[in-house]
Amino acid sequence: MTRSPGRLLRHPVGPLAAVLAAAGHPARFEILQALVAGPKPIAELQAELALASPGQLYHHLKTLASAGLVEQPERGVYRVPPHAIFPVLALASAAADVAERSDGRPASP
């Protein structure tokens, strides 16, 4: 995946902001972390994340799906689509790099 800085800066901000907003919520980012390793049934995801209700989980999954970060390949099972795995990891890496540097700590390798 290669994109020049100029191309990124000219990209319409709406779709970019939608992806960042979807991934930027703590519960949704935890969902992405759980699903990036592979598909999970909804019951397993609910138990792993300990969200207060299944309704909350479905709400977050719907937001992630609308942004193209999550899909439902079969009934009751969710995953990060193959084309989105690297971008999700890149978002996590970029966020970690910025967060670590803003704390005054050096970025981890």
Rank of each mutant, 00 (worst) to 15 (best):
T2M: 13
S4G: 08
S4K: 12
P5V: 03
P5S: 04
L9W: 06
R10V: 12
P12G: 12
V13D: 06
V13M: 03
G14Y: 02
G14C: 00
P15I: 03
L16R: 07
A18F: 00
V19Y: 02
L20N: 02
L20Q: 08
A21K: 11
A21H: 09
A21S: 10
A22F: 05
A23F: 08
A23C: 06
A23P: 01
H25G: 02
P26T: 09
A27V: 12
A27C: 02
R28L: 06
I31H: 01
L32W: 07
L32N: 03
L32Q: 05
Q33S: 08
P39I: 11
K40A: 12
K40Y: 01
P41M: 05
P41T: 13
P41F: 10
I42S: 12
A43P: 00
A43E: 15
Q46L: 13
A47P: 01
A47L: 15
A47C: 00
A47H: 13
A47N: 10
E48I: 00
A50W: 01
L51F: 13
L51H: 03
A52L: 09
A52C: 03
S53T: 15
P54H: 14
Q56P: 00
Q56L: 15
Q56W: 10
Q56D: 06
L57V: 13
L57P: 08
L57G: 08
L57D: 11
Y58L: 14
H60G: 04
K62V: 04
T63N: 07
L64H: 07
L64K: 07
A65N: 04
A65M: 13
S66R: 11
A67K: 06
A67N: 04
A67M: 14
A67G: 10
L69C: 07
V70Y: 02
V70G: 05
Q72T: 13
P73G: 10
P73T: 13
P73A: 01
E74G: 03
E74W: 00
E74S: 15
G76K: 03
V77I: 14
V77W: 12
Y78E: 05
Y78G: 03
R79I: 00
V80D: 04
P81G: 05
P82M: 04
H83N: 08
H83W: 02
F86Y: 01
V88C: 05
V88D: 09
L89W: 09
A90S: 14
A92T: 06
A92Q: 10
A92M: 10
A94T: 11
A94Q: 04
A96W: 01
A96N: 14
D97Y: 14
D97C: 12
D97S: 08
V98K: 08
E100I: 00
R101K: 14
R101A: 11
S102N: 01
G104L: 05
G104V: 05
R105K: 11
P106Q: 09
A107G: 06
